[in-house]
Design a binder for these strands. Structure first.
Length: 561
RNA sequence: UGUCCGAUGGUGUAAUUGGCAACACGUCUGCCUCUGGAGCAGAAGAGUCUAGGUUCGAUUCCUAGUCGGACAACCA
């Protein structure tokens, strides 16, 4: 896979705490110089920017230490999982620029093995079949501060347990009738050690194993052992699994298999959005957004549709770093990353979102001049293009003020302004609608000696405006986005409210814009900078007849702080 | 009330493992500019949660406390 210009290999940069652990293990020869990580999603939802952090971390570490990274689906719950999700996850990881080669695994690949592991536990007297209901189990589990009570089925004989467990597998019991539990310690201060359930009965067909199984391992019984089976050296996961680690260690120990080292890091939180799968799903289901890939969503597919690039996301992941303390990253940083990337690579183009007609009184009626415009001042090799210029133009409504006050450097009566890549023009008069008083058009004169590139063109004027020729401009649908939520932390809702109450009603604004004709051939996901406005990406809905652009980010955040 | 984890400018991450805190974003100022973008130059902003202890010396080690987070799905 193509190595991109992600700046994740800055020499001399200090190591994060995970790299430190890895290098320590490398020095001590712990895994015979191997570094092997994995990204282990459950296929029950779409990936979001938080997952991107984990993906970049895991695959980044694999790459950095010349190791390997697996993609493994932890598909232990058939009622919530679906191939739709595995496909989207694969697409997103690939799009982010990572390659798991031939190591696409599934916890369901290990079901038989996991069943054997359960048998080992039973034979050792470390697991038992329990007939209590879900409610009873939950009642006897105790609380974090109060010990639980032992199940009356806790002391069944090994033979009875083996027998019962095989009948569970054979489908002789209905859902919920029995579970297999690890036999550890009902009074452990760690709730996860109070005889946790390791197998439950679910008569639902699985997206990969079909109806082969009607008992499924719990995540906690599958995850650690799957890592072990895959000989993962460093199992990197988020903080909430820290409390599970003692149980994973116990299992590995009792079963007697290879022990990966689990390292937990703090998950990503982004301001002005929500990150939980459940909430994102609600936004989709309740139609607050158009779908998982709505450009306002923090999902990978949403960001992709919005116009984010894999490079920008990887740089973002690299910039935020990784540590154990809770964090909330300012969404401005994400925006900074995409601006930085697009500034270097997006071609500049002119487009007007709120048109105001300009008539150049001294410009020949039918003349069309082809103006040469630089495609990207940051990158001369991007070349130049021609932009038609004629007597009637559109400029941005807000670039004209009849009675300017203060530091207004744009067009106003009697004042001069530069039209980007074209001429300097002077405002002569304003024509208004006699009834509404609205400005209908602005009459100007142009100075023929000031054409861009001509010797006389260096005269200084304070402002430079973008423009488009009325009769050449292409109409386009422009979708402007604002933050999905009005508050920094929608999760932290006040009494009686939920995050839904903080949805920004103005997060989507659709406009008809006029764009220079050079954009005629754009394809979905093409990136452009509309000069002085922002970066835009062609939407999937765009066709040759109906261009549709998404605003990725404006050039500079003008939002009051 | 228990166990585990964490605490460094506004935000995030560092500090060569004990030698008086750095980088990025943001903010501010100036320069430059045919994008009020970008770029360039500079500045402000934390004495590292608190109190003790060890030490010549502590952001780094120890103790206690404070605050924040995680944990009581047959979810992951």
């Amino acid at each position: 896979m193509e190595e991109n210009n992600t700046k994740d290999e800055i020499p001399g940069r200090s190591l994060n705490f995970i790299e430190e652990i890895i290098e320590e293990d490398l020095r001590s020869g712990k895994n015979g110089n191997r570094v092997h990580t994995r990204f282990p999603p459950e296929p029950n939802g779409y990936l979001h920017i938080g997952h991107a952090k984990s993906i970049c971390l895991n695959f980044g570490l694999g790459k950095k230490y010349n190791g390997k990274t697996n993609l493994r689906f932890d598909d232990t719950n058939p009622v919530k999982e679906d191939v739709e999700y595995v496909d989207s996850i694969k697409e997103d990881v690939k799009w982010l620029g990572f390659d798991w080669e031939d190591r696409e695994f599934y916890a369901s690949d290990y079901f038989e093995q996991l069943y054997e592991f359960a048998l080992i536990l039973i034979r050792k007297g470390k697991a038992y079949v329990c007939d209590m209901s879900a409610d009873e189990i939950s009642e006897t589990r105790g609380t974090p501060t109060r010990p639980g009570k032992e199940s009356p089925f806790r002391n069944r004989t090994v033979d009875e347990n083996i027998d019962l467990f095989s009948h569970m597998r054979a489908g002789e019991f209905p859902d919920g009738a029995k579970v297999l539990r690890a036999k550890i310690d009902m009074s452990s201060p760690n709730m996860h050690m109070r005889d946790p359930i390791i197998y439950r009965i679910i008569h639902t067909s699985h997206h990969r194993t079909g109806d082969t199984w009607c008992i499924y391992p719990m995540y906690d019984f599958a995850h650690g052992q799957s890592d072990s089976i895959e000989k993962i050296t460093h199992s990197i996961c988020t903080l909430e699994f820290e409390v599970h680690r003692p149980f994973y260690d116990w299992l590995i120990q009792e079963i007697g298999i290879y022990a990966p080292r689990q390292i937990e890091f703090a998950r990503l939180n982004l301001s002005y959005t929500v990150m939980s799968k459940r909430k994102l799903l609600e936004l989709v289901q309740n139609k607050f957004v158009s779908g998982w890939d709505d450009p306002r969503m923090p999902t990978i597919c949403g960001l992709r549709r919005r116009g984010y690039t894999p490079e920008a996301i990887r740089n973002f992941a690299d910039t935020i770093g990784v540590a154990k303390r809770d964090n909330v990253i300012d969404i401005n940083l994400l925006e900074f990353c995409i601006r930085e990337d697009l500034n270097a690579r997006a071609s500049r183009v002119m487009g007007v979102l709120n048109p105001l007609k300009i008539v150049l009184d001294n410009f020949p009626e039918d003349l069309v001049e082809e103006m040469e415009a630089v495609n990207n001042p940051e990158n001369p090799s991007a070349g130049i293009r021609k932009v038609p210029f004629s007597k009637e133009l559109y400029i941005e409504e807000e670039d004209f003020m009849e009675n300017p006050q203060g530091k207004f450097f744009r067009l106003s009566p009697g004042k001069e302004v530069r039209l980007r890549s074209a001429y300097i023009i002077k405002c002569e008069s304003v024509i208004k609608d006699p009834i509404s008083g609205r400005i209908r058009e602005v009459h100007c004169t142009y100075d023929p000696l000031t054409k861009s590139g001509m010797p006389e063109s260096n005269r200084k004027v304070k402002g430079t405006l973008h423009w488009v020729s009325v009769k050449h401009a292409l109409k386009a649908e422009i979708r402007l986005y604002d933050r999905l939520f009005t508050v920094e932390n929608p999760d932290n809702a006040e009494e009686g409210k939920t995050y839904i109450d903080y949805l920004n009603p103005d997060s989507l604004q659709v406009k008809t814009g006029y764009i220079e004709p050079s954009v005629k051939q754009v394809l979905p996901l093409d990136k452009l900078q509309f000069e002085r406005l922002g970066y835009f990406s062609v939407d999937y809905d765009s066709t040759a007849e109906n261009l549709v652009f998404n605003c990725v980010v404006t050039l500079k955040d003008k939002r009051p702080k």
